[in-house]
Design a protein around this nucleic acid. Sequence first.
DNA 1: TTGTCTGCAAAGCGTTTGCAAGCGA
DNA 2: TCGCTTGCAAACGCTTTGCAGACAA
Lengths: 136, 136
Amino acid sequence: MEVQRNTKQKQVLLAIMKEAGRPLSINEIYSLMVQQLPKIAKSTIYRNIDSLLDQNLIDKYHFNDNEIFYRIRADRHDHKHFVICDDCKRIFDLPACPIHALEDAMGEEGFIIKDHQIQISGICKDCAKSGSKNHK
Amino acid sequence: MEVQRNTKQKQVLLAIMKEAGRPLSINEIYSLMVQQLPKIAKSTIYRNIDSLLDQNLIDKYHFNDNEIFYRIRADRHDHKHFVICDDCKRIFDLPACPIHALEDAMGEEGFIIKDHQIQISGICKDCAKSGSKNHK
DNA sequence: TTGTCTGCAAAGCGTTTGCAAGCGA
DNA sequence: TCGCTTGCAAACGCTTTGCAGACAA
């Protein structure tokens, strides 16, 4: 890996992701960044996001069958999953990772889990109460 | 929902998916279908896949951070997850669904899980033995 | 100065859409 | 016949790439 230069764009990107702490889409990141760097290009964001992914400083999440979000890791061992409400689209933490339990079981069968992703969607408490649209 | 017409294209698509029984990508489906229907268009496949999804006759799976596969359901209660080997790209069954256990726990917190997806990747027994490329 | 990084525009790629012709019921 | 389906081509949306100029080191 080449030496990384500490550009304004990278600083702002990291600052925004730290400030948010939650999963952000490229568009959210973009609209936050334009406020500070009016000429920022999305391609720059994509490239910097890629390098943060390579460095394992952020994680990539998929929601709703193809909306992609990125979230900064609090530390090296920060590992988290989320659930999204079909109604209000808010994102909630999943209390524990259900895959860890599987790793041992799979290991016994000879399959070594290297990576995993979970997408869970449903109806959050508030939306269930107010009884809005998507309850199929 | 309007009445569904029983076209040659739908018959062949279903036959191919039943025959395979495993997750297939659009490209796999396409190349199998062209053999029987040389003029088939991918858009036709996409449209028919969509209607099978609406009817809950097939499931949609994501692997490898955005390869999409479709698999026919053996029956209404058929519910399955898979793991993919980073090396040989073969797809293996996951013995049990780790999300079911979560549904109760989340339900107590007021979040009603409606849908979920899991992607697990790693190294299968055979590739671990032969020690090929991707063991990072 | 050097070589990485950026903004811009164009290209890519998988998927969706519009439309006239085809064809199942 | 009627109108859902199809094949074709074009459009779409998101992401990636090529390139010349900008700018960390």
